[in-house]
Design a protein around this nucleic acid. Sequence first.
DNA 1: CGGACTCCCCGCCATA
DNA 2: GTTATGGCGGGGAGTC
Length: 341
Amino acid sequence: MPHAPLHLTVAHDVPPVTHRVVALAHDGMSPFELGIAAEVFGLARPELDVPWWYGLTIAGETRAPMRMLGGLTVYADADLGALAGADTVVIPAWPTARRPSPRLLDTLLDAHARGARILTICSGAFLLAATGLLDGLSATTHWRYADLLRRRHPSVSVDPDVLYIDHGRLLTSAGSAAGIDVCLHLVRRDHGAAVANVVARRMVMPAHRDGGQAQFIERPVAGADGDDLVRQAADWALSNLDEPLRVEDLAARAYMSTRTFTRRFNQAMGTSPRRWVIEQRVAASLPLLEETTHPVEHVSALVGFSQPGTFRQHFLRIMRTPPSAYRRAFRARDAERRIAS
DNA sequence: CGGACTCCCCGCCATA
DNA sequence: GTTATGGCGGGGAGTC
């Protein structure tokens, strides 16, 4: 994954909490999804040089101890009232069979109307869909629940083939681990790719899996053979993004014919070699846009696009905004935060 | 922007 | 019979 430059400063003060994340817990939930929220948003992160960080509150409909799968017990810090002060609400999961109380739905609607962001992981999409906020929008959930979600909420366009979908203030993500991807994605939006990479690295996660990546990645049980060769070729490509990187060359690095290489690449990485390279190039350009003043043409060349026009085109498609606008927006947000803090 | 050119993708299929 | 390989080619995407 992209080896972005890291700016780790030593022994910093803990960044001030100016953004409340409230995760909704319920009886019988899986601790894993709640753990994702705790890991990404609930730690103090003194190692990060950021003007602000998240503070996490666990809210529940009840203050009574809640049993989680696997025998853990969780006590909510707060009741639903906490959602009134939330900047971001995380719905880590929701029992697909449970009917949400009107009070819970109203609380979520209020939070959204107030401008809060709502992020769901796995079956959490069912609760968000029940509010009606997803009507007319695309959303995703665990692939096992996709059909059920589609049947229950026909006006939601369910896409089971992506890791997460970002509508700005409404984010949905696929099964368990995709929750990490969407949370890191949010960190990237808030703080930039370099900071997200530091968090990802601490979690020993690949820095960036694109939201559009297939949920299904078929992988033979023991991936010690051809898959390793594919990964090695991909690793090499990552550290040589500025080279032309034709599929034929990558295949040669994996000692395979191009046909076999493309086939195995698809199985191992969930996307084709060419598409993957382009995504990696765009991903590698983010820290450069954020942290350097290199002209876009220069950034384009640094990440391997021989024509700046091609770079802009792919950047626009993937990031939904042109490189220059991305840089401007990032700087503006950054400046705002420095003044605020 | 258009158009020519190259390269990629992937179903198909003979083969190992 | 089953599974992986890799050449071929048409249609599509990317490049210049």
